[in-house]
């Protein structure tokens, strides 16, 4: 039986982890490769790196990071953040990333999804969708949640699946950072509307949240950042809890 995946997410700036994690025995808490290895030992199923670098060095640095990760990490990893051209995808994939995540650019230029899927395979293209509850439905937001595109989240999810996305990383802007649980309703709506896997993101604070994301939100994978970074839980603790709740996980 296919396992539900647990995916720690790391924010990267200038090739370094933004919120350095103080794991015991870690020599350099800001080194993405060291942290990745630590999560790997905890049996993380995949890793996501979101690059928030805003300088001209951005492309070069993230390429170097992908290449270092690919030499030392033998689980799948995704790189996202500011990917807006097919050349960006090419650079990152050639350097060794398994997947790229595309957010704002997917809305502005949807053909990036189809072109990316055609050239590198659907498995490589993760479309990140940021949503906020707007009246009775959810709208898609871009530019770190600052711009309401007016697009209906469920319709947009169907469209990106049709264009060839391999997965959807769904972040609820309402619950992100609040640690009060994932937005189960929109996760479920989208998970049931498309056939591709959904990664639930935003809002994790407790162990129960991972379970409800899968059981009620119908998520195929669950992404979290701060609970792992601050050492609230290890990936293994999360998985043991989920296994006890009857969810298939890789332990």
């Amino acid at each position: 039986m296919l396992a539900k995946r647990i995916i720690p997410c790391l924010d990267i700036k200038n090739g370094r982890v933004v919120k350095g994690v103080n794991f015991e025995g870690l020599r350099d808490a800001g080194d993405p490769v060291e942290l990745a290895k630590r999560y790997n030992e905890q049996s993380a199923d995949e890793l996501v790196f979101l690059d928030i670098t805003a300088t001209n060095e951005k492309r070069k640095l993230i390429k170097e990071l992908a290449s270092r990760l690919a030499r030392e990490l033998f689980i799948p990893f995704t790189i996202g953040g500011g990917i807006s051209k097919i050349e960006h995808i090419q650079d990152i994939v050639t350097a060794g990333a398994d997947k790229v995540s595309i957010n704002s650019a997917a809305v502005n230029t949807p053909e990036l999804i189809s072109q990316g899927a055609e050239q590198f395979g659907s498995q490589c293209i993760v479309v990140a969708i940021d949503v906020k509850k707007t009246g009775d439905s959810w709208h898609v937001f871009t530019h770190s949640g600052t711009r309401d595109t007016g697009l209906d989240a469920v319709e947009w999810a169907k469209e990106v699946a049709r264009l060839g996305a391999g997965e959807i990383m769904l972040t609820s802007m309402d619950s992100d950072g609040v640690q009060d649980g994932y937005d189960l309703a929109i996760n479920r709506l989208i998970s049931e509307a498309v056939s591709i896997p959904i990664i639930a993101s935003g809002g994790c604070g407790k162990l129960e949240h991972f379970v409800s994301a899968v059981k009620e939100g119908k998520a195929d994978a669950v992404l979290a950042a701060s609970v792992f970074h601050y050492g609230t839980y290890t990936v293994r603790q999360v998985k043991e809890y989920m296994a006890a709740e009857g969810i298939p996980v890789r332990l």
Binding site: M1, L2, A3, K4, R5, D45, S122, Q123, G166, E167, S195, I196, P197, D220, A221, R250
Partner: peptide, 11 residues
């Protein structure tokens, strides 16, 4: 009726 592709870890 499961999700296709199968993506992730299986035994």
């Amino acid at each position: 009726d499961l999700k296709v592709p199968q993506m992730g870890w299986n035994r």
